[in-house]
Every structure is written in C-alpha cells, then in structure tokens.
Design a binder for these strands. Sequence first.
DNA 1: GTGGTCTAGACCACA
DNA 2: GTGGTCTAGACCACT
Lengths: 129, 129, 129, 129
Amino acid sequence: MLISLDMTGDDPIYLQLRNEIVLGIASRRLQGGEGLPSVRQLAEDLGINAMTVNKAYTLLKEQGFIEIDRRQGAKVRVSTEAAPHFPGRWQQQLALLIAEGLARGMEKGELMKTCEQLFEILNQGEKTQ
Amino acid sequence: MLISLDMTGDDPIYLQLRNEIVLGIASRRLQGGEGLPSVRQLAEDLGINAMTVNKAYTLLKEQGFIEIDRRQGAKVRVSTEAAPHFPGRWQQQLALLIAEGLARGMEKGELMKTCEQLFEILNQGEKTQ
Amino acid sequence: MLISLDMTGDDPIYLQLRNEIVLGIASRRLQGGEGLPSVRQLAEDLGINAMTVNKAYTLLKEQGFIEIDRRQGAKVRVSTEAAPHFPGRWQQQLALLIAEGLARGMEKGELMKTCEQLFEILNQGEKTQ
Amino acid sequence: MLISLDMTGDDPIYLQLRNEIVLGIASRRLQGGEGLPSVRQLAEDLGINAMTVNKAYTLLKEQGFIEIDRRQGAKVRVSTEAAPHFPGRWQQQLALLIAEGLARGMEKGELMKTCEQLFEILNQGEKTQ
DNA sequence: GTGGTCTAGACCACA
DNA sequence: GTGGTCTAGACCACT
C-alpha cells in the first residue's frame, strides 16, 4: 500500500500517517486481520522518525482501528465493536464540513451526491488521492 | 448568537471561533449581510485577546465567508460565489470522515442518513452542540 | 469616466480613487488640462466622505498628476516636468513586481510581452479593469 | 544575505521583510531549496519581534515562495509551479505602475528599457537598493 | 531545536 | 469608532 506524506504541509506527520491508514482500511487495501509493518520498518520506508510512526499506531489503537500485540506487531482490527469517544467528535466534524458547504450555498442534492460518490469510491477500493 | 469556546481543549481558540461562526452562517443564525461584533467587542465578550479574534476574522475573510469593511467592521458575505481553494481540501476532509465511518463498519444507508440529518438540523437553524 | 471602488477590500478608498484617476490620465480618458469634478460632487457621486476625495486629490497634486486651483478646482496637469520624489520609489516598486515574476519562474520574454501589452492597452485608451 | 528594514517608514515591517526575501529569491542570492533562518534567529538578528517574522514567513508560504517544514524550518521553494491567486493582482499592480509612467509622459521605449534593465539586474544577482 | 498560539497593552491609518 | 501592526514574553505541539 502506497503512503504519501507531505513533509512541508501544515498537518503533523503522525496524523497524516494515521489518516492514510484509515483510508487504507476503509478501502480494504488493508484487510481486517492483516498485519501492519513494524514501527521500525515503516519508519525506515517512509524516511521518518520511529517515534512518529509509534504515535500514529498508538492513536489508531486508541481509536479502535488496529490492535497492537507486543509479539506479533500491529494488525487491522477485524470486527468493529465499541470505539472510545467516537460518535460525538466524529459527528461534530461532519457537521462542520456540512456547515461549510451550506454556508457557501451548496444545495442538499449536491451535498448528498458528493457524500455518496466519496462512499462508493472508498468502498470499491480505489484510491482517492 | 451564543458562542462557546473550550479554553482547555487542544483546538486553537481562533479556530473554534472560526468554526462557530461558520456554523452560525450555515444555520442562518447569522444572516447574509449581517454585521458581526467588532474585534474588540467580541474579544471582551468572550474574554479573549483581540488578536485572537482578529485571526479568526482574517481567516474567515480569506476563505470567503465574511467581508471586512474598514468603516463598518465585519459582516457576513451575502452571495458566496467565489470560494478560494475550497473544493479540494474540503472533499479530502469529507472523504476522511467517511472513511472513518466505513472502517468502523458503518453501512451506506446509515452514513447517508446521518449526513441528511445534520444537513436538515443546520438548515432549520437549530443548534447542534 | 467610470470609477469603481471596492469598499470591502484591503486597499484604502483614497488610494483606490487616486489609482483610478491615474489610470484615467494614462489612458487619456482624462485629457491634459481637463477639469476634475469638485471634491463635494465626486464624493456625493461615489457615496463616500468628502475628506476621502480630498485626500486623493491632495496626493495626486503632491505627486504632480493634477493641479489644484482654489477658484477653478482641480484639473489634470498638462505637461509633465519634474515630479517630486518620483523615480526612486517607482523603480523600487517596479523592481519588486519584476522580482515576483522572476521568483515564480517567469521568463524574460513573457515579462516583456506582458509589459508591452499593458502599455498598449493603456495607450489606446481602453479600460483594463 | 543582507536585509535592510526601515523602522520609521509607512510600510509594515513584515511586508518589507517579505519583499526583501522575494528580491533575494529573484536575484538568486537565495537559492531554491536553501534554508532560511529560523523565525527566532532572524527576529533577533533584525531586532524585531518573532511574530513579525512569523507573519512575513506565513505570507511567503501562502504566496508559494517558500515552504515551511516543521522539522527544518523554512526553505525557499524549489519549483514554483502553483501560484495561488497570483496573476490577477500582479497584473493589476503592474498596469498601475505603467500607467503612472504613461501619465508622466514616459515613452514606450523608455519604459521597456527600464523593465529590461531591472530584469537583468535581478537576474544577474546584483543588489538593487 | 522548530513553528504555532496566546496574552496584555500600545500606537497608527482609515473613515 | 474601526481594523492593522508591533512588542515582549509565555506556553505548547511536533520531531
């Protein structure tokens, strides 16, 4: 799976990495149960600090996207049960994005169509960026 | 319009303020053409520094949500035709949120329903948080 | 002659007005010796404060573009002899603009062509904005 | 690279600093990819506040002249392909300067020669002021 | 180490 | 009155 990071952008690297992995899981390029590269391996491949990768993995674990086994390394979580402090923050962010569209005069149909398209693209395992 | 800020959270105050105003515009609690409080006034009301409010206003101006008139202060932009560097970043963020839902096993219907509900709540001018 | 002002933009109104008049002189929509509207008249036409117009006229007089006669009002200066503190500042600003082009990788031919086109457009008395 | 600021003039310091850096890039005193001093370092060297330097850097970043890397600080952008909201404003300013020349009776040849000279001076990496 | 954010208080340009 | 700029000093996030 290709991971692209922008070192000069405003977003912290560990967040970019976390987001890329979430996108990978959603598009099933990363299957449930599939193992992730080790922290050191991935750090070397991406040319970044191991602590940065570790931070991304820890975040993903806290948010319920992956599981970390000290012996087997990290792997994508299979079934998704409860996820810590998920819905509130997520809905809040989604509401903000929708508000931005509304504030710019976006119609309901236009918004729903965009959401549906993005969903389909991800669900078919194609790459969005 | 009530504005609530979390001074202890991780999100910068100027961003929270910017977001609250965007939500206000989307929900029409702030009408197009309506004047916003002056930088100093709002800073005093919220108990924050004027430069912080200034930063939020400047950001909103750059993103096309408000206009700043040297004589009358800031006011909500009426017709939001021009949207500087909008769609790319916005779609990217939306795709990420949808991916988070997908990665947690959310169904398409569930997602679309959530989006629609959020849209309706905002469009009816009710408060979301 | 049409004068368009942007009340919400970043540039001060008196400067916008000064610039519009300079453009008018350059394109000969305002002929040498031609009288300008009185301060009060122009202020009323444009819907701005008379002091703002006065400031623009004073600036134009200081820079040698117009002459102000207390009895006859303001009129475009006919022959252009010496102009106070002109060349230094003007060359400096021109150098900065050219530098911006260079810093963005603009070629010499591209730059010269742009300058020539702008010159011709103005010299033919057509409107540029 | 020497940077001279006029603390008593009308131009904001952050703008003067921004302009000096643009001139430096255009004249290749600052090479593409070259690192700029850190915000604090430059502020101390110039005897100004760090936030003022920060504002100049942020502006240069938004206008595509430099990149800011959280790890290595700011550096001159190598390939300047993307130029956010560049041409319109730039042409407008250039047209105004040319109009000032025209309104003072400057001939076409004189203007073109001046532009060419300024271009060559910058392109040869010599200092203009 | 880096840049990003925030504060309290000041002065200035504009209208 | 408005926003724009600047200062000195502080704390935080990221790497």
